[in-house]
Amino acid sequence: MQTILELLAICLILLNFRLLGASRLRSCVGAVAIQALALNLLPLLSSAGENWWIIAMMAGSTAIKVIVLPALVLRAIDRTKVVNEIEPLVGYTKSLIIGAAMLALCAFASRRLTVPLGGVDQILVPISLFTILTGAFLLVARRKAITQVLGFLVLENGVYLFGVTFAVSEPWLVQMGVLLDLMAAVFVMGIIIYHINREFDHIDIDRLSNLRDGR
């Protein structure tokens, strides 16, 4: 059991680096989907995974996070015909180096946050934080609107990783609501990206700068 957990953990870290270093949007979407799949496998490993409703929840969340959300993003890619993230604000090599630094930082920071329940899954704390930081980094370091949506999804995955590890006791109603909100958010983002693309003929967020103070 512990071995599988560690394998999944390593897999999650590698996927984050994959996201930091990839330029093709489609492969980024794939990485996000695999990440979500790995997350949803985690509760099965813990002993709590025997309740029927946890299994049902996971099935629902897998359906949304692994299939629906990536499909929505892929549709946005198709409609805007943007394939690559060309010239990101921070280059790929630099992104990878920053990623390594972030990982070290997270490992260091999580020493202070010990899990009160006795450190069963302590290894997941730094990984969750690292995933959140990766998402936040993608949000600021890339210029295509679609990459920003992906960054948001990665960040959500990080938060969710924390949730599945420690707060499994949360009622299904709440989890369902959270997933529905997330789905609606990505759906609306897709619509706005479509309109931005039609209005400007590009989806470079750093070039959207009509709105600023004064003058």
Binding site: L155, A185, M189, E199, L211
Partner: peptide, 20 residues
């Protein structure tokens, strides 16, 4: 129009990240 799209994008993304 262009400006309201920009505003809506910023709003949705920032608030979603904040709320995450």
């Amino acid at each position: 129009n262009a400006r309201s799209l920009e505003a809506a994008w910023k709003y949705l993304l920032l608030c979603s990240v904040g709320i995450a």
